[in-house]
Nucleic acid binder design. Structure first.
Lengths: 123, 123
DNA sequence: TTAGACACTTACCAAAAGGTTAGTATTACT
DNA sequence: AGTAATACTAACCTTTTGGTAAGTGTCTAA
């Protein structure tokens, strides 16, 4: 018995559900950075990524935390100290992302060539 | 020797490159619909998906065609006839998407619960 | 003569995503 | 007294995304 995934149901479609969470500009990057470190503080992630704005890092971390991909530990100190780490749930997603990344690495040059010749054909 | 993927390079990052292509609202859905049929005409895809606008279907197909995920065959007829089908490149991507979809199906209820309790904790 | 079939395109608009800059709170250090 | 450190938030703005409605061209059938 094969499970059929109903991707026509755009509201409950599992693909849509995943991509809505991680298909934004920063979520996966943050997740991967956290996967490479046990724990990281806000500014450490910020420096590690470099070109993310504080606002977007804050928004992204909040969304990842809400879904349970990332956990957040606050220390009652001044100046504040907050540690972020990836959860088992977050870790379990990453192999699939890695598979996508590998596929992408393998086919990127083909895709780029396709796009270039398509663009030329249009002019 | 393991290939390390440099996801900090946000310009050439392979994950970013894939998600930029397929992380939009309709690309994967169109690709999956085409995967379930040998060939489909524009209006057939349109009816099959239901809630996509003509404009977005047109834009999405054009982007998928440009990258080589979809091929387009025009018949010199009136009224026009255009057939779309998925390419081997497009097909080769889908197993990874299916893996993501399966992961999502398995963890969606957990994620929903996480999100619900997070939202409650904020109020 | 008018409508329909088909595969779109165009102009316009609304919503969402994301960036910039400045500001908050509290303590310690100089 | 002023500055630094930390982890943000708020106000504002621009860009991107996607939707709506109408129009295009050409032939055929009523």
């Amino acid at each position: 018995m094969k499970k059929e995934i109903n991707f026509y149901d755009t509201v409950n479609c599992p693909v849509r559900n995943v991509l809505d969470k991680i298909g934004d500009k920063w979520s996966l990057l943050v997740l991967m950075v956290l996967d490479h470190n046990e724990v990281l503080r806000f500014n450490e992630i910020h420096k590690s990524i470099g070109d993310i704005s504080q606002k977007m890092l804050s928004v992204t971390l909040k969304s990842l935390e809400a879904d349970g991909f990332v956990s957040r530990k606050v220390y009652a100190q001044i100046p504040p100290k907050v540690e972020y780490s990836i959860t088992p749930l977050g870790k379990s997603l990453l192999p699939h992302i890695d598979a996508l990344a590998t596929w992408s690495s393998q086919h990127m040059s083909t895709i780029m060539q396709n796009r270039a010749s398509y663009t030329n054909a249009q002019n």
